[in-house]
Design a protein around this nucleic acid. Structure first.
Lengths: 125, 125
DNA sequence: CGCTTCCCTGACATGGGCGTGAGGTTCCAG
DNA sequence: CTGGAACCTCACGCCCATGTCAGGGAAGCG
């Protein structure tokens, strides 16, 4: 399929898809006239890429992780796994941090409600 | 206390603290010579600000939220609460998304391990 | 006094994913 | 054949919290 189709199917912009390719996250064959051609399973790959972006990984990191992104070998696999482990930990920490932030927000909300009640009490004009 | 002290106590850089002030998130009195003076309770405030930054709020949003940041009034309180509610939802969604991303990563790890095992099996030179 | 350390303002740099526009080619339906 | 949609490359812009450098006052100790 062409790039517009892939964009429609994945929800990514055409620009983003080109960018992913530029970053080595996505490969395409080219038609005689130079247009990119993608295979159906790239849809899934894009979804995966976007998941990882959503997890806050950089394109470089995603590149390093992509299974068999270049030459599959036990060494590469191990390196990737190690990296994934690290990122997994980062993610977990990040989730915990967000949860803490949410708690902090809850605290602010309570505070605000209290303040508000105080205001209404004090000056019920 | 002076800005360096506050930085040490909060873990924020001096640059960041100035920036927070510039964004209206932090106030300071000035000494005769123009140096910023902070009170001890600003330490907590900075911690709170950083929590919210960590939650992905923009300085503008944080500004809008800060309790009684300008004129405390029931209307302002309500607006702030509404905003907080929205941000809370965003946070919750974001946490869920990160969790999904972590699952995706787990999937990749399993895949990678499988691939690796296959490689070792197939070509155990 | 002088030395070190801190503080001030102002301004430019940066990263990174993506929007956007220019200027041009290709594809396809009518 | 023709017009519009889709595609191409190149390149600049943006956001925004921070780092960092320059150039110059303060603070405080020996």
């Amino acid at each position: 399929m062409r790039i517009g189709e892939l964009a429609r199917r994945t929800g990514a912009s055409v620009r983003s898809l080109r960018y992913y390719e530029e970053q080595g996250l996505l490969t395409s064959s080219r038609s005689a006239s130079g247009q990119r051609r993608f295979t159906p399973d790239q849809v899934e790959r894009v979804a995966c890429i976007r998941q990882l972006y959503a997890a806050g990984l950089s394109s470089r990191t995603i590149y390093d992780l992509m299974p068999c992104s270049e030459s599959p070998s036990p060494e590469n696999s191990d390196r990737a796994l190690e990296r994934m482990e690290r990122e997994r930990e980062r993610l977990t920490a990040s989730i915990a941090e967000l949860a803490r932030a949410r708690d902090a927000l809850d605290g602010l909300m309570v505070l605000n409600r209290t303040d508000r009640a105080g205001l209404v009490d004090a000056a019920p004009r």
